[in-house]
Design a protein around this nucleic acid. Structure first.
Lengths: 356, 356
DNA sequence: TTGAAAGCGCTAACAG
DNA sequence: CTGTTAGCGCTTTCAA
C-alpha cells in the first residue's frame, strides 16, 4: 500500500527548466507570468502526473480547508429526521467541495471532538442545543462556526434557518378560523425552531383572538400521547399543532383510536414535513423546510465568515405550506389581520442557487 | 477570526528547558525518556495550551489520517435507505475518531472527488455500483479502499457485508414450505446484496424444489407494480420476496388493492428491514441488516489495510431474521435440507464490539 | 539520555 | 519577468 514516489514541485521545475517559484506561481495562478511559461509548466506537470501536496501548502499558512459538520441529534434513537439531516449534509458537502473545502463528519459530542487531530478552518453545527457545548468548543478554539438554527440560550450569529415564525402563522391563516382554540404539542429538547414556531403561534393567536396552549410530551408512547389528548379535550382545543412530523403521526393515531374525526372534529398540523405525512390517513398538512437550501446557504455563509467577509448576522428562508387532508384550506374567509406578517425580509434564493 | 498565535514545540522546549527532540518524544510517547522529563514536558505543554500542529506532523510523513466516506446512492431521489446509510456513517465516524482518523464526507461522484485537495489515507465506499468509478479512482490513486458490499463486476476485496445469501435462505426456511412458488421482485441498480440474495434464493429453491422467478421492476409507480403482480399471478407464485423495504411496501399496497390476502393467499418477505415495515398492515417479515456493525467493522478493516496488516479478503456478518405478519413462521416442519447452509465462517462480533 | 541539524514540499519575500 | 532563499512546525537521523 505504499504510495508510489510522488513527483514534487522540484521535479517539475527541473523537467520544465524553470525555478520552483515559477512552477508554484504557474500552477496556483499567481499574477505575473507569460502565458507561454504557464502553459509549458502545466504540460510538464500533467506529464509527470504531479499533484501539489496539500499538506505542505497548508503548512505554509493557508490551512487545509477542512470544515467540520456536526449534527445535533434530536435525542438518541430518534432517527426520524435523518432524511432532513442527510439532505442538509449532502448539499453542504457539495457546496464545500466545489469551493475547495472538505467536510469532516463529526459526532455532536465534545469528547469525540477532542480526539480530532486535524485543525478545522470552520464548522457547521446543525440544530444546536441549549448552551451547546460543541458550539462553545469551536468558538473557544477560534474555529469559525455557522449554525443552522440557533442556540436557544445563546442566539448570537452567524446562523441561518427557515422562517418558522412566519411560516407557521401563514399555515394557520390558511387552515384555521380566528377564534378556534389551538394546542401546541411539543416533544424533546427545545430547539430554536420550536421557539420560533411558538412565537409565530402566539402572534397569530393574539391577533386572531385564539386560545393557545402548549402541551409538552415527555415521551412518545401511547400512554403519554393519551394524556396529552386528554388535556386537548379538557381545553376544548380544536386545532392541534404538532412540533414535528413524528409527533403529528402519533397524535393522529391517538385521535383516531379515540374516535375523534380529523379534520372534522379536530384539525391537525405539523410544524415539519416528512414523507410519512403523505402516507397517513388522512394525510397531514405541514410546514415544509428546505434542507437542501439550508445546507448550501449555510456552507456559503461559512465561507464568507472564514474569509472574513462581513455578512448579515442571520438569514431566514421563506417556507412552503403543504396543505393536506388533516387541515384543508379554509374557504373564502378574510385573513384575521396582517399584523403577524412581519415585514422583515426573508430570503428566497432557490432560483438563484440553482444557477450558481 | 485570526487564530491567536499558537504556541509551538519550540516554546514548550524553551519553557521546559529541554530540546525540541525531547518535547517531541515526550509528547508522542517515543521510548527513551525518564518518566520525570516526560511528566515535566507534559505539564509545561498543558500550561502553554500547546497543541501539536497536525499539518506539520503530516508533512513529515505519516499523513493526516483522513479517510473518505462515499455512499453510493441507490438512485437519485431514492431517499428510502437514509437511516441505513446514516447509521453506517455514524458508527464508522465514531470508530475513526477514536483511532485518530477523521472521516471526510464525499459524494459518490468522480468529478466532485477531483476537487478534493487534501490527500486521503483511505476510503470507505458504501454499496458500490457495477464497475464503480469512484472505487476505481481511489485505487488508481493508491488510496486504500474498503467497501461495504462489493462491486458486482469487480468483486475483489477488501470488503465486508451482511451475509445476505445465508440470511435469505434462513428466512425462507422459517416461513416457506418446500415446493411453494417464489417470485423475487428487484428494482434499481444491481447492488451486490441483490446478487447474494438471488444466490441464496436459488440455493434454497433448488433444494426445496421450489419454482423461483425474478421479476425486475423498472419504476415503483402503481402501474409498474400492477404489471409485476400480473406476472406473479401468471406464474402462480405464492411467495413474493421483495428486494428491499420500499419495494415490499409497494407490493403490499398493490396486493391489498387487488384483494389478495397477505399472508393467507401470498406470503410477502423483504430482503431489507426498515422501521416502516412495522407500520404496515400486516407488518412485513424481513431480513435485518447491521448498519451499526457494518460501519464499525468496515472502519476497523480499513485501519488494518492502511497499516498494512494482512487480513481476510472479506468478512460476512450473520443476519437477524424478523418474523412479522406478512409471513409468519411455518409450524413444525422439517427444514428441507441443510445443503444451502454453507459452512463458511460468518462473523458475529456484536458482543465483542460492545465491549470495545 | 539528550541535543543539533537536516529536511518534508511548498510559498512568500526579496533580489536579480 | 524569473530565480534564490528562508522558513512553516514537526520528526528523525546522527552525534555528543
Amino acid at each position: 500500500m505504499k504510495r508510489a514516489k510522488k513527483s514534487t514541485i522540484r521535479d517539475v521545475a527541473a523537467a520544465a527548466g524553470v525555478s520552483l517559484t515559477t512552477v508554484s506561481d504557474a500552477l496556483s495562478g499567481k499574477g505575473r507570468l507569460p502565458e507561454a511559461t504557464r502553459k509549458k509548466v502545466h504540460e510538464v506537470a500533467a506529464k509527470l502526473n504531479y499533484r501539489p501536496n496539500a499538506i505542505a501548502r497548508g503548512l505554509r499558512g493557508q490551512g487545509l480547508g477542512l470544515i467540520g459538520i456536526s449534527i445535533a441529534p434530536a435525542k438518541s434513537g430518534a432517527i426520524s429526521d435523518v432524511w432532513f439531516w442527510a439532505s442538509i449534509a449532502m448539499h453542504a458537502t457539495d457546496a464545500m467541495l466545489s469551493e475547495g473545502f472538505a467536510p469532516i463528519l463529526l459526532p455532536h459530542d465534545v469528547s469525540s471532538l477532542q480526539k480530532l487531530r486535524v485543525p478545522l478552518d470552520g464548522a457547521l453545527v446543525v440544530d444546536p442545543l441549549e448552551d451547546d457545548p460543541v458550539l462553545a468548543l469551536f468558538r473557544s478554539r477560534n474555529v469559525s462556526a455557522v449554525t443552522i438554527g440557533y442556540d436557544p440560550k445563546n442566539p448570537r450569529g452567524p446562523w441561518i434557518d427557515d422562517d418558522n415564525e412566519k411560516g407557521i402563522a401563514e399555515l394557520l391563516s390558511k387552515t384555521v378560523t380566528p377564534g378556534e382554540r389551538i394546542a401546541f404539542v411539543t416533544f424533546g429538547p427545545r430547539k430554536s425552531y420550536v421557539i420560533d414556531v411558538l412565537r409565530g403561534l402566539n402572534a397569530w393567536a393574539g391577533v386572531a383572538g385564539s386560545d393557545l396552549h402548549e402541551l409538552h410530551c415527555a415521551e412518545l408512547d401511547d400512554a403519554s400521547v393519551d394524556a396529552i389528548l386528554q388535556k386537548v379535550r379538557a381545553r376544548r382545543s380544536n386545532v392541534v399543532v404538532a412540533q414535528n412530523d413524528r409527533v403529528a403521526v402519533k397524535i393522529l393515531a391517538g385521535l383516531k383510536a379515540t374516535g375523534v374525526r380529523v379534520p372534522e372534529d379536530i384539525r391537525l398540523l405539523s410544524a415539519t414535513d416528512a414523507p410519512e405525512l403523505q402516507n397517513s390517513d388522512p394525510t397531514i398538512s405541514a410546514l415544509r423546510q428546505h434542507p437542501d437550501l439550508l445546507g448550501e446557504l449555510a456552507a456559503r455563509l461559512l465561507f464568507d465568515v472564514i474569509r472574513g467577509v462581513r455578512t448579515a448576522d442571520h438569514q431566514l428562508l421563506l417556507m412552503d405550506i403543504v396543505l393536506r387532508g388533516s387541515a384543508p384550506p379554509v374557504r373564502s374567509r378574510p385573513e384575521p389581520a396582517g399584523a403577524f406578517l412581519r415585514t422583515e425580509v426573508a430570503v428566497r434564493k432557490k432560483a438563484k442557487m440553482a444557477s450558481t
